Computed example of a mutant assay.
Amino acid sequence: MKRLNNFFYDEDLRSDAKCFVVLNGTQIESKKFVFHFDKNSQFFDILITLSYLEKVNLPTQIITSNIEEFYEILAKFYIYKRQQIPNEILISEKLKPEIEKFKEIVPFLAINKDIEKFYYTYLMIRTLRKLCPWDSKQTHESLIPELVEEPLECIEEIKKQNPKGVEEELGDVLLQILLHAEIGSETNEFTLESIAEGLFNKMYERHPHVFKETKEKSPEEVLNDWENNKKKKKHLNISKILASFITTVDLQEEAKYIGLEFRNKEEIYDKILEELNEVKKASDDALKEEIGDLLFSVLNLARYLQIDPAHALFISYQKFMERVRKFKSLSEEDQKDIDKAWEKIKKNER
């Protein structure tokens, strides 16, 4: 085995390697983290990947067609990172001219630091999806609570005018984006690239006053155009509802720790019935407040039973949407008796 820091070369796959970097296009299957690079791969991608693996100090086996290629890759990597090749790296005479040529282009390979840090972070997320028991089990659905809660925590830090807190919470928001992007990539649904491209196209289309029109517009006109554009693609959105649910539950949890808590779930059932009766009796002026109290009590029940109300509502939301879709697909004759048609749709779900 030839080894330099956390990189090593061996003809056989080693059990002590946590990652594999395959440089010759050979496909290997492993539960560990595998980077495949063939002859068409951009050499810079290899360099930045090795740079990340060195940064996080993961034992990495480089799989190549021969050991000379292993030394060549590491020589170029160390030139790129530190402009100096360690004495332990053996360069054959026939490779030395190529290495010298590489030294000349290194200044042109400099990468924007923002992009470099972002790419390292994304590679870390990809690593965790393979090597961390918790991260590897997450799905789009299981991450819904965090996806809703993290932006709210960021808003809280903004309101506190706490820049360091905002910085940290924005990192947590970015974590959710990268996790969902990687999950989408694994299931061939979407990728980080397609997400970025979709956002680019949307922002381009929604800013004709910047990219297409010559006439200057006021901020009010720009906002009006934006809203009109959004209305063309209007769809049901429950994100604000989910956000308010999580905020409410957090408040109820805080209240619990100062002694404001029900003794059992039966007390909450009674409170819900009490609030429902108040809704029935409420005047038009008081109706909004009473419905708010009813919702607050239902959320308290979910919290007490350790059920995420935002996720529970989202499940019901999806179920209702599917039933509406099935109802719309019925013939006009079948739609006439709404109650009968609706019960039939529900029965077919069981």
Rank of each mutant, 00 (worst) to 15 (best):
K256I: 08
K232D: 05
R206K: 10
I63Y: 01
T64N: 04
L178V: 00
K55H: 06
V249H: 04
S65Y: 01
N277Q: 13
L299F: 15
E332D: 15
A282L: 06
I105S: 14
K231R: 15
I48Y: 03
E289M: 08
F70V: 00
I246L: 04
N188H: 14
L223A: 10
Y304Q: 04
F320L: 07
G165I: 02
C132E: 09
Q161K: 13
K326A: 15
L199A: 14
A75R: 05
N348P: 07
K280D: 15
I272Y: 13
V106S: 12
R325K: 15
E216H: 08
E189R: 12
V34C: 12
D114G: 01
E104W: 02
K340H: 15
L23W: 07
I158Y: 03
P59T: 02
L295D: 02
E343L: 15
L50D: 05
I67P: 00
I246P: 00
W342E: 14
L143D: 01
L299D: 05
K113M: 09
P309E: 04
G184D: 08
E157C: 03
R82G: 12
N162W: 06
L299T: 10
D38W: 01
Q306G: 00
E189M: 11
S51F: 06
I46C: 05
L74R: 09
E11I: 11
I155N: 03
